[in-house]
Design a protein around this nucleic acid. Sequence first.
DNA 1: CTTGGTATCGATACCGGTACCGATACCTTG
DNA 2: CAAGGTATCGGTACCGGTATCGATACCAAG
Lengths: 336, 336
Amino acid sequence: MAGKRLTLADVARAAGVSKMTASRALRDAGDVSRESVEKVQRAAREIGYIGNPIAMSLSSQRTNLVGVVVPSASNIVFAEVLAGITEALSDSGFQPVIGVTDYDLDREAETIRSMLSWRPAGLIVTGLDQPEAARRLLEHAGLPVVQIMDTDGTPTDGCVGIAQTDAGAAMGRALLEQGRRRIGYIGCDLAGDTRATKRWLGFEAALAEAGVPLAGTLVADRSSSIAAGRQLTAEFLSQHTNIDCIYYSNDDIAVGGLFHCLHAGIPVPEEILLTGFNGLDLVEALPVPIATTITPRHEIGFKAAELILAAAERRSTRVDTRIELPTRIEMAAGFH
Amino acid sequence: MAGKRLTLADVARAAGVSKMTASRALRDAGDVSRESVEKVQRAAREIGYIGNPIAMSLSSQRTNLVGVVVPSASNIVFAEVLAGITEALSDSGFQPVIGVTDYDLDREAETIRSMLSWRPAGLIVTGLDQPEAARRLLEHAGLPVVQIMDTDGTPTDGCVGIAQTDAGAAMGRALLEQGRRRIGYIGCDLAGDTRATKRWLGFEAALAEAGVPLAGTLVADRSSSIAAGRQLTAEFLSQHTNIDCIYYSNDDIAVGGLFHCLHAGIPVPEEILLTGFNGLDLVEALPVPIATTITPRHEIGFKAAELILAAAERRSTRVDTRIELPTRIEMAAGFH
DNA sequence: CTTGGTATCGATACCGGTACCGATACCTTG
DNA sequence: CAAGGTATCGGTACCGGTATCGATACCAAG
């Protein structure tokens, strides 16, 4: 097969026009006759030309990349957000480039810097509360930035997410309405996840407002997982008595809690009502109902990518849009 | 702040050397005195220079990108593979670029073509059995290609994965050893997932060898999920009697099957032994034991990326390495 | 016939780096 | 002292596209 890679010059030669005309024809950028366009496109197809986005980017000082910074690649929540981004970008000619921080706040600035070096058309970053260094980078990036997941605070530019504090408060009130009074809280890795912390604070405030203090709290400095939820729940229930409800920092550890209860023979939800956050598919299929707040993960990614595309379209360096998506409380999620 | 972006020329001017010397100093490419290196690096740090990988790539005809093609971004298995790739690449200066096919065989060639246009240092592609068009692209890509997940077949270049057919057969024999004889099979989306099909065939062959036919089969043309597993299991058990074991195409639908059994009051594993595939964290935390084959998802990604890095290191266009990783059967996964 | 407008095209100069090679200075060796 | 080697540096020509502007041809209007 072809020794060297084909360039635009090869297409131009095959079509009998100049490089410039070929370039314009392939991008249909106007200033080319209909016949020339057809000649060039046919030639490109015949010789099997594939454009070079790198040269294109360097020359036009514009890329078709969208940088995405998430704390974890294997967390299903962010995987779903990524799927939303990918879907929104799929037919636009834009490519997502992923950076992962592993919930390490120090790596955040470094990851953002590395994304920016590609001079992407826009940046999608998780969370509103970056460390100072990262925040400065975003402010001076000179390109559209969308912060996702959270709307509690002031975004650098645009944001798409949910009102985390309100979501926690709403769940607190909903549990009180169910008549629960001995309510505990179990959370994981709150240092790296400011959104979970906001929910916790909102939740606690809502209870306090009704004169109901938290019956107990267990926060572990480890990453969320079903196994962690099991262990923490066992530990928590051995330390506190008469608990009738537990609010978890997310669905994963809530499911772990449920598994502990199933194994220990504790009736759920009659004796203890378990409460997660996100409304994962896993939760919707559980054989025993638990409560959760359903969040639009996919839609958050989709809308964030749409905002970047729109800004790129109008050659703007800002998004300047704040989208707060609704959440829905489901008191008895699961199939039953 | 700075109006224009800083370039290497700015660094060179600040350090009082030529562009070339600055370039060499920042890459420590030799042919520069120690003092010059220090001068340049200090200057770069002081003015806040960020390199431009696009210009670098165009000029050197070499990128620090690794293309990754997976069928799904939100499937936890591939999310874990991606995490492995990301980890292996994290300190190498290489960046993964993700392409998603959504199990659509037609989009596979298109996705690979789009990856190739970036002229990455290497490509990691899911599966050994690409459609013809995609396979041709890989063969003539002229760069290291690692096909992952599967080792049953002939890779274009390198591969890292597990022996899928053998894995199915091994589970078949293990279930027979447990004394199970009325064994069913439930699978999802086998058209898009040739690996699951291989396991099924290996499984069935192992049973046949022992003179035990499958007691029943239910294959649905829908994507795998816990909810699908629940529904399919309910349907299957209403159609077949005396089933004492079910082999599922993966853990997700096996867990769905378990949830059905828990809800229907069927004793697991005493009456029916459920069998998944992958050994997900979810399965390890289940309150009731199910069987599964534990696969090294993270390691597959990690090793695949390592192969690409090694090939890039020695400027080779091929990997030419086949890595078959071991799997382990766990007959009673779960915490109990 | 001249003038001016429109449609189409190509030459040239970049974009921001690196490869390649030649130049210089200095040292070692015979 | 001449010859050759080594260490260090810079000039130049690209990499493969696009932006910009000028050139040309053709047509309608005056």
